[in-house]
Amino acid sequence: MNYRQLASAAALCSASLFAQAETFTLTSPDIEHGEPMSKVFEYQGFGCSGDNLSPALQWENPPEGTNFYAIFAYDPDAPTGSGWWHWQVINIPASTTHIVRGAGSIDSEKLPQKARQIRNDYGEHAFGGACPPVGHGPHRYQFTVYALPQALDLPKGASAALTGYMVNANALASSTLETTYER
């Protein structure tokens, strides 16, 4: 490899590292990508007896133009034919870069004032924890934060599908942590 090739390779490597450092990322002190969740994140009801707490989440390096965020928690392995929506929160202001454990409770005061929780598949406007059928094996739980250019004006009874469509249609970027849980 000559000097020019080496310099070019070094520049590409440096640019690649810089780009990676600027990637929109989601992390959590409560859940780890690819690892099982604690029982505190299990639903309380439907035969489940967990604490039904939403995990703490934090994100960084949103793309330029981000003015709001949305958070989704989804189980693609639920035996419904369409998965299971555990949580959808929209209109989180861009000044927010984290939420604390338990922020997804009904009428939560731990979410930013303008944030709006959409009805989950348990029928609540809140976080609904993991509750896979006993013996069904591990289910995946995908926690995703989306960067959005503007707030979403959804009707009061918006479905999870409509919310998902509008968030995905407007997202500038997203980042996902996927964890597991089984009973």
Rank of each mutant, 00 (worst) to 15 (best):
W85P: 00
Y146G: 02
S14F: 14
A147Q: 02
H125K: 14
G128Q: 04
G50L: 03
L57V: 07
S28F: 06
L57M: 06
V40K: 12
I90M: 03
H33M: 09
S108R: 07
K156I: 12
E178D: 08
A94K: 09
V40T: 14
H86P: 00
I106R: 11
R4G: 01
E60P: 01
G157Y: 11
Q88K: 11
A73F: 07
I118H: 01
F18T: 13
L6W: 10
A11D: 11
I31H: 00
A11T: 13
G104E: 03
P132E: 03
Y122H: 13
T27P: 01
A9Y: 09
P55W: 04
D77E: 09
A160K: 06
P133I: 06
Q20F: 10
C48S: 15
T27A: 13
T80L: 05
Y165Q: 14
A56P: 01
S28M: 08
A73L: 10
Q88L: 12
F24W: 06
P36F: 06
K110N: 12
A151F: 07
P138I: 08
A130C: 12
L6P: 00
A151I: 07
L177H: 03
A21Q: 11
F41K: 00
P79S: 05
T179P: 01
P149S: 08
D30C: 08
G65L: 08
G102T: 05
T25A: 13
A11L: 15
W84G: 00
M166T: 14
A94P: 02
T27Y: 05
E32K: 15
P93Q: 07
A158T: 10
S49R: 11
A19M: 10
A173K: 08
A11V: 12
N61S: 13
C131I: 02
Y165E: 13
S174T: 09
L172Y: 03
D51K: 12
N91Q: 07
N170C: 08
N61T: 09
Y3F: 12
P62Y: 04
Y181R: 00
L12N: 15
E178R: 09
T180R: 04
E35K: 15
A173H: 06
S175E: 05
N168I: 04
R116T: 14
D121E: 09
L6G: 00
L6A: 15
A56E: 06
D121C: 06
L12R: 15
K39L: 12
E22W: 08
D75P: 01
F127W: 09
N52K: 05
G137L: 08
D121H: 11
G104S: 06
S14T: 14
K110S: 14
G81Y: 08
V40S: 10
Y146K: 02
S175W: 04
A147W: 01
F127D: 01
L57Y: 02
I118F: 03
P63Q: 07
Y122E: 11
V145T: 02
G34I: 08
A70E: 02
I71E: 02
I118D: 00
P155M: 06
T96W: 06
Q20W: 11
F24G: 03
K114R: 10
Q117R: 11
I31L: 07
Q58V: 10
A171D: 05
T23Q: 15
G50F: 03
G123I: 07
F127P: 00
G34V: 08
A161V: 15
S105D: 13
P79E: 07
L12G: 15
F68P: 00
